[in-house]
Design a binder for these strands. Structure first.
Length: 545
RNA sequence: GGGCUAUUAGCUCAGGUGGAUAGAGCGCUUGCCUCCGGAGCAAGAGGUCGCAGGUUCGAAUCCUGCAUAGCCCA
């Protein structure tokens, strides 16, 4: 981050001196291959047309202009107009001091500038326990909240409870049916009901709490079953999420929207703006005006409002609560719904105010064999089962190791393995290794060097670690901007890999005391940044393993 | 029938505001245990970035068509 900032400022000044405009498409980045130096910029290529000069000539002019910069040791011009910069070793060593001064706040930025953001995630219907697919959404949402907060956004995490729809009726019906079965009544199976065994448990508890349940009129009994079941399942969901380390600041009920008349309010708004109209006894959303191939029904002629209607009202409500940006995390099977929801937000006057992140399927495997899951069939692997078996850390890291919209194979045996197949151990081990080293150093009375005694950090291995540490804030910003927690996971794997390499090549305790204490200072920063990054994923950094 | 998304090494996947010799892990081959945790490290082999066109000085990246797969809608 410091390298990037310094370079950008120096280049901008040089361009201003030449009277050239800064090209928007300039990319300043840390090249993968070290032969290209510490940082590279394609600015000469970008400027070529504007300056009416060949890229090479532009590059040479820029090298000339930057020659007085004390922090830059070397500038190379590469073939297609790249400038490759190598910074002075002392510049990199200052990274240690920056990280130490920042402490746990290293990586924070003002990117978000206090923008009010809401991230809504999981939001599973309270009709059954969370399964592993919800787990992926939970890990993603929670991590995104942490990352965006780190990047300076003001974030609220919300869970939307679909407690007003047809599913709730089916749930009540399922519980009532099982209650009657438990009471020995001869009842026929409803055609649509939740078959999972957990319904039987709930029915048993519901009967115990309401001994006269089955003597009540059908509608009344059904209502009791429904409410009992929902409360019970919702509590289970909250418990599972808590055990998974996931935070929601607000639990928002769909029913409350309807009860407070918010849906009608939103309808009135749409009518006023011309985006809603009555026809054929129904109320329509004029989505054709926003590119949809047909208008969508919001209230059918029988008076029922559609899911889409409550979703529009819900998003209207979110915006009225003052959020500048609303992020929804949905299952990838809802992708067809995204343009419609976007159009609805546009109709509400909040174009660009909604971002939808799609989470693809999780294929649960055991030793390579797929495990089927279906809530309806009552055969699934719950999130709780998975967390109990492999642990929250390992499952979270696994969920966040891929970008969210690609499918993920989750092999229970693989995730449990403490090997290279399982990146979480590789990363956590890097932290534990350093902590162990620090303990040993303490026993022998070796102290980490202060910022003025870091000169011994002069090998390529030192530079590799320092450069990577300097990049951490860039990764946090990038992860926040593109809403991609997996970037942090990939960064940590690279940092861990570099650390393990360092560890093999550069011994600490057996080195000369001045070298040893300088290395100890560097590795202390590495451990802190590993811990820092893991915390953004919601994963622990154990002192020993 | 219409639409969305995908297709990158043997496997699982990164990489997309167009830019250098396309990256990682696993697996495979070959080395490294007198040394702070070998749960590790080093080197190597492995690619027409699904196919065919187009735009461009330059395409894994953008456009068009096709193939295959998954999903959504009617």
């Amino acid at each position: 981050m410091r390298a990037k900032i310094h370079l950008e400022e120096a280049l901008k000044k040089a361009l201003a001196d030449k009277g050239w405009d800064w090209p928007d498409k300039t990319v300043i980045e840390s090249p993968k291959d070290r032969q290209f130096g510490d940082m590279s910029a394609n600015v000469a290529m970008m400027l070529s047309k504007q300056a009416r000069m060949a890229p090479r000539a532009v590059a040479e002019a820029l090298v000339q202009a930057l020659s007085g910069d004390a922090l830059i040791e070397k500038i190379d011009i590469a073939g297609p107009g790249f400038l490759n910069f190598t910074f002075a070793p002392s510049f990199w060593r200052e990274t240690v001091g920056h990280i130490r001064r920042a402490g746990g706040s290293y990586g924070e930025s003002t990117l978000g500038n206090g923008t009010k953001v809401q991230v809504e995630y999981v939001s599973a219907n309270p009709t059954g326990p969370l399964h592993i697919g919800h787990g992926r959404g939970a890990a993603l949402g929670d991590s995104l909240v942490r990352i965006m907060e780190k990047a300076g956004y003001d974030v609220q995490a919300e869970y939307y409870i679909n407690d007003a729809g047809r599913q709730m009726l089916i749930l009540g019906n399922s519980i009532l049916f099982r209650s009657r079965q438990l009471a020995g009544q001869d009842v026929t199976e409803p055609e649509d009901f939740y078959r999972g065994d957990y319904i039987i448990d709930i029915a048993r508890a519901c009967l115990k709490a309401n001994p006269a349940l089955l003597d009540l009129p059908e509608a009344e009994a059904m209502e009791i079953c429904k409410n009992y079941g929902m409360a019970d399942i919702l509590q289970g969901i909250k418990d599972d999420l808590a055990a998974f380390g996931v935070r929601h600041d607000n639990w928002f009920s769909e029913k409350s929207l309807v009860a407070d008349g918010k849906v009608e309010e939103t309808f009135a708004d749409l009518r006023a703006s011309g985006m809603g109209y009555e026809a054929d006894g129904a109320f329509w959303f004029r989505s054709t005006r926003l590119g949809d191939d047909k208008d969508r029904v919001l209230r059918k002629s029988n008076g029922d409002t559609t899911y889409f209607a409550s979703d529009i009202a819900y998003h209207d409500n979110k915006f009225k609560r003052g959020f500048d940006l609303v992020v929804d995390i949905w299952g990838a099977d809802h992708h067809g719904y995204v343009p419609r929801m976007m159009a609805a937000c546009e109709a509400l006057g909040k174009k660009g105010g909604l971002a939808v992140i799609l989470v693809n399927l999780v294929n649960l495997l055991k030793n390579g064999e797929p495990i089927a899951m279906s809530t309806r069939a009552g055969q699934f692997e719950t999130l709780k089962d998975v967390v109990d078996e492999v642990g929250a850390d390992a499952s979270r890291f696994m969920f966040l190791s891929r970008k969210s919209d690609s499918k993920l194979d989750f092999d229970l045996e693989l995730v449990k393995q403490k090997s290279m197949d399982n990146p979480v151990y590789y990363v956590q081990y890097a932290h534990a290794r350093i902590r162990s080293l620090q303990k040993k150093a303490e026993e022998t009375g070796l102290k980490a060097a202060d910022d003025t005694a870091l000169a011994p950090l002069d090998t390529e291995h030192d530079a590799d670690l320092l450069r990577l540490l300097d990049q951490y804030p860039d990764y946090v910003e990038s992860a926040a901007r593109t809403q991609s927690p997996h970037l942090i996971s990939m960064y940590l794997q690279e940092l861990a890999s570099t650390l393990h390499r360092y560890y093999t090549h550069c011994h600490v305790l057996s080195a000369d005391p001045a070298v040893a204490s300088a290395r100890l200072a560097l590795l202390g920063c590495v451990a802190d940044v590993v811990k820092n990054g893991l915390s953004l994923l919601g994963v622990n950094a154990p002192e020993s393993m």
